[in-house]
Write a protein that binds this DNA or RNA. Structure first.
Length: 479
RNA sequence: CGCGGGGUGGUGGAGUAGGACCACGCGGGUCUCAUAAGCCCGAGACGCAGGUGCAAAUCCUGCCCCCGCAACCA
């Protein structure tokens, strides 16, 4: 199996926060999980850097736009190293490689693109048009700002032409949307039939020259969403001289888009329609994760409760963050608090999991055997069952359940060690079981704790099908 | 009646008819291989009111409350 796994590309008008990190980590865990199964993976993320809001944000900070986005891009990209994210590609929408792909795509869709006059009111923050009904007193309902009046010609994409097809693809689960209620929601939107053709360009004067110019028309730039979605193709070299990655991972691979619940419509409706127009395969999976509230409140700058990735790193190892986030539900909002985070780290990660590993090494140190074989044990089928259940949950993107259930194995091994008093009985059969258990645990937790687990694995030696008892010392998460 | 999701111990979750489970937290006990870790025992919950069933957290009806689609925002 070949998997193309993506995050949505964050809009870089501000610094990264826990929500961005959450999505990155979720997708990374899934990518690493797929590698665990020895499947082929291409994992991609990037930054969305066009759009008028960028111009505005830069102005507010008194910087030129290019300088501003470079700075923000660097902040987002730094998360890769800070949290050990296994991105194979990190695409920027202001890059040349992206632009080339966008032009190629535009051309493929050209038959569905037309020019029309548009007059109305525009909110620069939404990057969207409103009419008088939607925006009483010409105040943006979202941002409470005065709308700008304008009349201009725009390029439009014949979205409506593809809606029926998109609907049927979703109904038939050719495009699978997780969780199901989001699928239902999208289908309801499609049934209502209120969707109109999509304006896909903006006047270059309003964008102050920032953005990708429309091909053969230097008075317009491409609407930021139309260009942003294309990152999924351009990151694979679409439109470049070498499209082999695109062929391999998009056209012949299984696509997994991890996105937030606020951008479902773009990914489940606009994006497939665009691809249909260009005659390119549609994505197989759209995984919609929910949002995080902070200590019971919505995260917002006005409330000043925004948590940044760096806030964690002051007091905690980055893997604790991965571990914690993986144990939260994807498909419902959940609340973050420092207290619960710390309790989880101290209690579950250190006390139970890390301690168990250390404990097993401790027992092995006091055992005279140089090697332990892997003869079958009465627990073998039990181990298999655990992993099977784990896989089932992972394939449904219920990471929290997968690990919650798998944690029973940690519990069981601790119980088993106590019950049998293995440190004094030292029965070979029991030793085999805890070693096998150890290896099972290392396997399943690797996506969450890649660095720690790998360093343990490097200390373990298996020679001629036997576990070599090397008196391993180890101190994970010890401060 | 716009559509949809949900209300389970202090907290977060599992559980779609037949013993209410798991983790954290709390109280007590206990082992000593292990990072003051582990193990055992205990206290504590199905939003409200009806209905159907031998049996309801689970199905039906009504009501109350929270949330999403559709507030900054990911």
């Amino acid at each position: 199996m070949r998997n193309f796994i993506t995050t949505s590309i964050p809009y870089v008008n501000d610094s990264p926060h826990i929500g961005h990190l959450y999505e990155f980590i979720l997708a990374d865990i899934f990518a690493r999980y797929k590698k665990l199964l020895e499947e082929e993976v291409f994992f991609q993320s990037g930054t969305d850097e066009n759009g008028m809001k960028m111009v505005k944000s830069a102005e507010e900070k008194g910087k030129n736009v290019k300088e501003f986005v470079d700075e923000k891009y660097a902040e987002f990209y730094s998360l890769k190293d800070k949290f050990n994210l296994s991105f194979d590609k990190f695409i920027r929408t202001t890059s040349e490689e992206h632009k080339i792909g966008v032009y190629k795509f535009w051309k493929l869709c050209e038959k569905d693109i037309y020019i029309d006059k548009y007059s109305g009111f525009y909110c620069i923050s939404c990057e969207a048009y409103y009419d008088e009904n939607e925006a009483p007193n010409l105040i943006c309902p979202v941002h409470k700002k005065k709308l700008e009046r304008f009349e201009e010609e725009n390029y439009f994409f014949k979205l409506t032409k593809y809606l029926d097809k998109v609907k049927s693809l979703i109904e038939k689960d050719k495009i699978k949307i997780f969780p199901t209620e989001k699928k239902v929601e999208i289908l309801n939107i499609l049934r209502e039939g209120k969707i109109k053709d999509l304006s896909i360009s903006r006047d270059i004067k309003r964008s102050k020259g920032w953005g990708i110019p429309v091909p053969n028309d230097n008075k317009q730039v491409i609407y930021v969403w139309f260009d942003a979605l294309l990152n999924y193709l351009t990151g694979l070299g679409f439109g470049s001289k070498n499209e082999s990655l695109f062929e391999r991972f998009w056209q012949k691979g299984i696509v997994y888009h991890f996105i937030g619940k606020d951008i479902v419509k773009f990914h489940a409706i606009y994006w497939p329609a665009m691809l249909l127009s260009a005659n390119i395969k549609v994505p197989e999976n759209i995984i919609v994760h929910y949002h995080i509230t902070i200590e019971g409140e919505k995260m917002s700058k006005t409330l000043g409760n925004v948590i940044s990735p760096d806030d964690f790193l002051k007091d905690y190892p980055y893997e604790a963050v991965r571990f914690y986030l993986a144990h939260q539900p994807l498909f419902s909002d959940w609340d973050f608090s420092w207290q619960s985070f710390d309790a989880f780290y101290q209690g579950v990660l250190k006390k139970d999991l890390a301690n168990l590993i250390l404990r097993i090494f401790g027992i092995l140190k006091n055992i005279d055997l140089d090697e332990i074989d892997f003869e079958s044990t009465e627990f073998d089928s039990e181990f298999k069952k655990y992993f099977k259940k784990f896989k089932e949950n992972m394939e449904n993107f219920e990471f929290n359940l997968a690990y919650q259930k798998y944690f029973d194995l940690v519990k069981n091994l601790n119980q088993f060690i106590d019950y049998k008093r293995i440190w004094e009985s030292k029965h070979l059969e029991d030793i085999r079981i805890i070693i096998k258990g150890l290896l099972e645990i290392l396997k399943a937790y690797e996506p969450l704790l890649p660095e720690t687990i790998n360093s343990i694995k490097n200390k373990i030696e298996i020679k001629n099908g036997k576990f070599v008892n090397k008196k391993i010392t180890f101190s994970p998460f010890y401060k």
